[in-house]
Computed example of a mutant assay.
Amino acid sequence: MLQNNSSEQNEKLEQNQREKPISFPVKILMIGLFGGLFWSFLGYLAYIINFTEIAPNMILEPWAVGEWKQTILGQFISIVVIGAISIAVAFLYYAVLKKYQNIWIGAIFGAVLWGVVFYLLNPIFQNVPAVTELKRNTIITNVCLYILYGVFIGYSITFEYNELQVNNREEQNTPETQTADAT
């Protein structure tokens, strides 16, 4: 009886508790949000040290009115907006490319994303010159940031997807499920 009581207490200890796994959609949301915040902040740092002419606040140009967009507050609000948009980008990657276990897929995804933003969506951003009018440093810096962003999103989502597949296979092959299947 004493032994049963101590094993029950042992299970109740925090260190012996298993964490509830985070659902896969929440993981994608976190990857997208963190990726957008981190890489757009690095883009802002690149803007500050004059590696690029394009600041994160370009995202607010078509929709927000006022000079506040040019302030530090405007830059940080833009970084948060980019983080929110990045969540949708992460879900897009998950829907289309999750099964590809190759770092190059993420790099190509980032390069394609750069092309979409700077070629297809360029008319929306009136303060951003056409790619042919941008300085070489701006193009190289932004292409590199987008490729690294794509690799981060792609590799993180692919890794989590493959971990989920491995865990599902392990759960199917546990002795408990095999015994239940045998009966």
Rank of each mutant, 00 (worst) to 15 (best):
S78K: 09
I72L: 14
L73Y: 01
I54M: 05
A46C: 13
G83E: 02
I79K: 09
V81I: 12
W63N: 07
N50V: 03
L45W: 02
Y47H: 15
P62W: 10
N50E: 10
P56Q: 05
I49T: 08
G43A: 14
A55M: 02
I82D: 07
E67F: 09
G83R: 06
I79G: 03
K69R: 14
L73N: 11
P62G: 07
I54V: 15
E61Q: 13
A46T: 04
L42A: 09
G74L: 05
Q75N: 12
I82L: 14
G43P: 13
S78N: 08
I77Q: 09
I59P: 07
I48W: 06
A46V: 11
N50I: 03
S78R: 09
T71E: 13
N50Y: 14
E67C: 03
W68Q: 07
V80I: 12
F76M: 01
I79E: 04
I82V: 11
Q75C: 10
G43R: 12
F76G: 00
W63Y: 13
I54L: 14
V65H: 06
S78V: 05
Y44W: 15
K69E: 08
Y47C: 00
I49V: 14
I77S: 12
P56S: 12
I72K: 03
E61A: 12
Y44I: 08
N57C: 10
Y47Q: 11
M58I: 10
Q75P: 07
